[in-house]
Every structure is written in C-alpha cells, then in structure tokens.
Design a protein around this nucleic acid. Structure first.
Lengths: 151, 151
DNA sequence: ATTCTTGCAAAACCTTTGCATACTG
DNA sequence: CAGTATGCAAAGGTTTTGCAAGAAT
C-alpha cells in the first residue's frame, strides 16, 4: 500500500510529472478498490461520494498517466467502457468473464510464459504484457440454469 | 467464400432472421477484408466508397447479429472502438498488438487448450471462447528504434 | 518564475434507439 | 400479410480537449 504510493511518486518524478493531491487521492482510491475492475466514471463517483472533490477529466487523465507509466492496467471487457486495475507485480492473472451474469473472476496462472517465449523468438516481437480473457458460463450461472431447466 | 455465405444464410434462417441484401453485402465486404480487423465505421465507409448504399446503423446491427450467431468475433484492442473479424473455424489465433505503431499481427497457435482444460476443472467455469492479446514492440519498430538511437 | 495540472464545459466519438417505410418468407 | 429489417436522425454514453485559474518544483 504505502510502498505502491512511494513507487508511483518516484516513477512519476522520474518522468517529469508532478506529485499532486488529486493524483495521490486517485491512487489511494484505486488501492482501496484494488479488488475491483473499476471504470473511470465509477472511480469518479466513488471518490465524490467519499468526499473528494475531483473532476472527471482529471480521473481520466490520471488513469491514462498511470497506464502509460505501467502502474495500472487498462482492460476491455466489451461492456462499453475501459476498466482499470492496479498492476501488482506479484499478482499475474487472467480473467474469466461470465457471458451470462457479467461477473469477472480472476485466475492466477502463468503457464503463458512458455508461449510468450516462443512468440518472441518466432515473430521477433518484444512482449511487454499480455491480456487473456476467457468467456463462458460461471459456476453460479451454470447452477441457476440447471435449476431453471428442472422447474 | 461461397461456403461461408451459405453457412451464414443457413444459420440466420435457423434463428428466424431474414436473408437480406444489406446482410449479404456486409458479409461479402467482410470476406473481402478478411485479413483486417475492421471497425464498424471503417466497414461502412469502405462499403460506401465501393458503391453500396447502406446505413451505419445497419452495419452495427448486422455485425451484432453475426457476433451473436458466432460467425464473427468482436475484438477490443483499446483504440476506442470495437473491431470485427470473421470467425474462421480452422484459423484459431491470437493477436500481437504493437504499442508503438499500433499494428496488429496474428499468431496461429493453440497451446491454450491445456490451460483452458485446467481452468474448467479448477473453477467450474464452462469456457466458450477466449481472447488473448500480447502487447509489445514489433520487429519493424524495434529496428526503427535501433536506427534512431544510433543516429 | 516556469512548467505542469486542474476543473469546467464543450466537443468529439462511438454506438444504440425510435419510428416510418420497405422488404422477406 | 405478418413479421422483420432498413435508413435516417436523434439520443445516449464514454472519453478527450481548450482554456483560464491554480499548484508544484
């Protein structure tokens, strides 16, 4: 938590960006909501509700900045907006998107490394990140569908 | 090409949808541009230029229909719009997105099956599809960056 | 001081929707 | 003919931008 803030502060300084109140608050809010995949508008609304006076444009700009710096990942789940999550070094994972209820589950796994390596060699492409999503039906929805069918 | 059209016609009929001129034209256009990941607006503009009189709303509606039917995949590369590609049965692949030039390369590969299987068991999640993208720097851009550095 | 950042409102985009007309099965 | 599909224009939602005022180094 604190270390993430320090890292962010340092990385921004390194690139000539300033350390401001709004930026600190946004990172704080992201840390508090780190379990979620939050959209810019949701984050803005949440912060408003928690008493932070911050403009929506600033939220967008700051998130973009954090993505550019590699501190935050920008995700597209196809629901009409971009979603963001903290880039935690030791928490590589993929996403399971339930097509029925829309819920998103995380899968910690790194079997992708072998594949990445092969691609880097085969395509002469320097991979800096990946984004893997699986679509399907989650456990809860499968259960509901069974129950509905048996009525 | 022809077979894809037939398959589409049949699948749509099966679900009570009608086979119309605009739908045929859109699928034709998609087949012609099958090497691309085209957006709805791009497809619309292209068709206009080629002399087809078609409304943008129809393009959106038809693409949505084709996605729903499984004939087309909807992709999000984070550039602000949805992109579409034909779902060719024998052409499973992933995408390499160059962070510098934005170009998108395809990698044919199916090493993911093992991983999928493990997830289905571990998470009781019925996977119906996946979406894997790698981000990084492509060969051409790496070369340009080397040259620029050496100037 | 200079440069960067913010907030607001307006603009820019992409996508969806309502409705009257036209078409398919 | 009944039920869909289309085109247009308008509306909706998300994200970006211009600009004057405010903050950080």
């Amino acid at each position: 938590m604190e270390e993430f803030l320090q890292k962010a502060r340092q990385l921004l300084a390194q690139r000539g960006y300033k350390w401001t109140g709004p930026r600190r608050d946004i990172i704080h809010a992201l840390l508090r909501e780190s379990y979620q995949h939050i959209s810019a508008e949701e984050l803005h609304a949440l912060m408003q509700k928690q008493g932070y006076e911050i403009g929506l444009a600033t939220v967008y700009r700051t998130l973009e900045l954090l993505v550019e710096t590699g501190l935050v990942h920008k995700l597209q789940f196809g629901d009409g907006c971009s979603r963001y999550e903290l880039a935690e070094e030791d928490h590589h994972h993929h996403h399971l998107v339930c097509a029925r209820c829309g819920k998103i589950y995380e899968v910690a796994m790194d079997l992708l490394e072998e594949l990445e390596h092969k691609i880097e060699l085969d395509h002469d492409f320097a991979i800096s990140g990946h984004h893997l999503q699986f679509y399907g039906t989650c456990s809860a929805c499968k259960k509901q569908m069974r129950e509905k069918r048996d009525e």
